[in-house]
Amino acid sequence: MEERLYDLIFICRPATPEEEIDKVIAILENTVAERGGKVDKKEKWGARKMAYRVMRHREGYYVLMVIRTAQSDTVHELERRLKVNDAVIKYMTVRLDEDMKRQKRLQQRRERKAARRPRGQRPGHAHPAPEQPAAAVQQQ
């Protein structure tokens, strides 16, 4: 299986001590490493207000990890670990590689268009130039 990219966000209880959160992160990192994956990014957003109450908490300690893995059961295992952990009140995994692929494709297309444009018929016009890519993008 080819490699896939995931966003893994989890929220801990606001009262959780920092070490505990680090421990959770370490566990997840190990899990990923065991399965031949990689952790691309680790971000602690810290305690922030949640948009709604989760398990009676109004605040939560957000942690984001970006994970790259080729093994399909990695996410399963990660989610299981998060579920088991008492400090974690909410988690979400989002597969991102397809969005990223799409983004890359669009970017490339735009660059190609940009490269082609100078040879076009209307040089010197500041106006038509910016409009072209936008219109073209919408057409597909």
């Binding site: 966000i9 949640m50 948009a51 709604y52 109450r53 939560g60 909410k90 979400m92 989002v94």
Partner: peptide, 15 residues
């Protein structure tokens, strides 16, 4: 919708 899932955005108006 993703943001709602992880409590970054509200589902309903009231907090």
């Amino acid at each position: 919708k993703r943001a709602r899932n992880i409590a970054l955005m509200p589902f309903g108006g009231a907090r």
